[in-house]
Amino acid sequence: MIINHPLLGPRDAAEFVHLGDAAMIDRPDWQAKDAAEAFHDYLYLRDNPAGTYRELWYHEQGDRSWLVVIRDTITHDIKNVELARDHARRRGRSR
């Protein structure tokens, strides 16, 4: 596979490590009332779609950036790649 890195252009997937669901970015608030349940869902409940999937890849043999990749799990067609840091900020993550 080829991942079109937003800064570096197309790179072989061999340079990357795959983690899985980009929902891993949405780490719950530890002080919320339902924190235990929220963390349970966060850690154990993942979508497994046959189709479009938003997932995390790590450019370990490259610029060490985490990326959010939108990939079709049936065709492997990749629709979008962005820096996970940008995605995380949009999801409200900061400090």
Binding site: V17, L19, M24, I25, R27, L56, Y58, E60, R64, S65, W66, L83, A84, R85, A88, R89, R93, S94, R95
Partner: peptide, 19 residues
């Protein structure tokens, strides 16, 4: 060593991107 570095980068970029 490699796995921890990867995990720390995940925490740095994805969980707390503005530290």
């Amino acid at each position: 060593a490699v796995l921890v570095f990867r995990q720390l980068e995940f925490a740095r970029q994805c969980l707390w991107p503005d530290l």
